[in-house]
Nucleic acid binder design. Sequence first.
DNA 1: CGCTCCCGTGCAAACGATTACATGCGCCCC
DNA 2: GGGGCGCATGTAATCGTTTGCACGGGAGCG
Lengths: 340, 340
Amino acid sequence: MDRKIATIQDVARTAGVSTATVSRTLSKPSVVAPATREAVQSAIAETGYRVNATASNLRRQRTGSVIVLVPNLANPFFSQILAGLSSVLTPAQYGLLVADTQSGPDPDERLAHYLTSGQADGLILLDGTLSPEVLRTPGRPPVVMACEWMGSDLPSVTVENARGAEMAVDHLAGLGHRAIGHVTGPRGNVLTETRLEGFTRGLAARGLPLREDWVLEGDFTMDSGAAAARAFLRMADRPSALFLSSDEMAVGFMGVVQAAGLRVPQDVSVVGFDNIEMAQHLTPRLTTIRQPRTRIGESAAELLLGLIDTAALTGPSDVIEVEFIARGSAAPPPSDRNLG
Amino acid sequence: MDRKIATIQDVARTAGVSTATVSRTLSKPSVVAPATREAVQSAIAETGYRVNATASNLRRQRTGSVIVLVPNLANPFFSQILAGLSSVLTPAQYGLLVADTQSGPDPDERLAHYLTSGQADGLILLDGTLSPEVLRTPGRPPVVMACEWMGSDLPSVTVENARGAEMAVDHLAGLGHRAIGHVTGPRGNVLTETRLEGFTRGLAARGLPLREDWVLEGDFTMDSGAAAARAFLRMADRPSALFLSSDEMAVGFMGVVQAAGLRVPQDVSVVGFDNIEMAQHLTPRLTTIRQPRTRIGESAAELLLGLIDTAALTGPSDVIEVEFIARGSAAPPPSDRNLG
DNA sequence: CGCTCCCGTGCAAACGATTACATGCGCCCC
DNA sequence: GGGGCGCATGTAATCGTTTGCACGGGAGCG
């Protein structure tokens, strides 16, 4: 029968009321008389009416969706954040539009595009490499950073990165290690810098030396962890423990040193960062710092909804706590073991 | 100055033409005279005009976005598929709206909701557990399955799951294994069944026995792989090699058997499925079947765009090839080694 | 009994773009 | 020179909702 989908007009006609009344029954039921309300409800059921979101959005000058800019969608790091975003935005009736900043040529231009396109009521940035200047766009929608970003006072969700790194050093030092190395993320990345800062602060607090040649640069990937391991194996004077700025790098690192015949943690202790699911399934199980990624997404979504509701561009930020998880990949250093 | 964003009216006024001409310069430049075209272009530049996608969509009776229904966003398995989807949809000017079917109470109802809500020009399903009946909705948008789905003739993108499993068995048999076990995914899942089918076919082709007690049920997770390993360790008569239906399970399996003192591949050979990034960083490196997840996403997006363009609900499907990747986790069985 | 007030509803104008149809002008050809 | 044709542009209806404003009627109060 009804080939076309019903419009609010059809419902109004069926219920014998005006379109205004139908619209009000849907948005502010309290202002319409109970009898009318029921008539409208059954007309809606009869016609199978669904409100046309596009028309509604046009009239209400909104879009009903939020864009999340992800540096690299293929990186599983982000999937849990997406899950957190979705769990908050969906109940709030917002669509989650994901865009990969790497897929085009110029990431900054992509950001500028989304800021001006008016395709979303708000933006969430997961990419810490974008230029802050782009945000000077007049009339832009609210934006929340869901990772740290140098020199920006945007509302953001950050993790206690420095403290996490400090906890890692503290744990290793507590086990008796005095020669502790570090594998960083890519230089310039804020995660890298804050974790490095926490690392050095942790060493200082324990009165341990910071040896430049024991600080290796990685890029958070397993491959770079493997490369760091090869550099480690070439060292004449090796640290007895390493704190790596990501679990992925720790996986890559352990893979190479184990293949070279070293045992973890007997020959070298390893601490990662992130507590990826795999951490507890490695051999040995990986000692690491947990950062609750789902919570990061949830919190970012909540902050953004707050901004949208109040039509504000600035608002509170959130700092997410980290948790140290001791497992089997860190143990007292060989020298202590000989003594014990 | 201009607090409000410019509309097509403003551009028309600035350029001294009608809104129709402005619209045409944007959509069909060839029909407007070069001089007018330039005038409009500079008026656009001057006013900073951006077309309002909502209004355009309303008029054109489309939405400009595609919804992808993901069973569990937190599962990194899907992030690469999303990346593939994004890489095709973004250049085609479609937004990618992601929705988590698990986040609500009733997944089927979520699907029904999106089918009727008219919020997207098309749907991509990554969730093979939804009920086919829901798709009988009249007037629904085109849908593409990006994983197998029992008893559905929907356009879909599938992977040569059975062949992949057969290749695994073939490889192990070629190494000399005659006692080969299997850890499946959850029963009823199509991936599970097709890989199991390939497994049994592979055994049959080599004239090897299928031992029911060597087929363990998992659910694709590392935890279930670990559980399978504990069951394996309890066996009086163990297979010399195992094919696991996911790399995650293989990781969990290897973790437990290694912790129990068994060596991979000397004591037991392991083959996974998927070639997750970590596979090559494990110790030993994991022999597995590669399924190109980015390609799955790209192909699904292309199929869907085809359906949208032709306003069709049915169309071609795509089968993605798998590739066997031999690494270190599978080797000749102990008996052969003794002989060799 | 008459005046207010308020509650529930309808009317109609937006929102910003697209596009079928109308219009006007210049040119070609007979 | 007039009729016709076609090109470039304008006019205005339309997509489906929301919402400010107006209106009618019933109740309450003096």
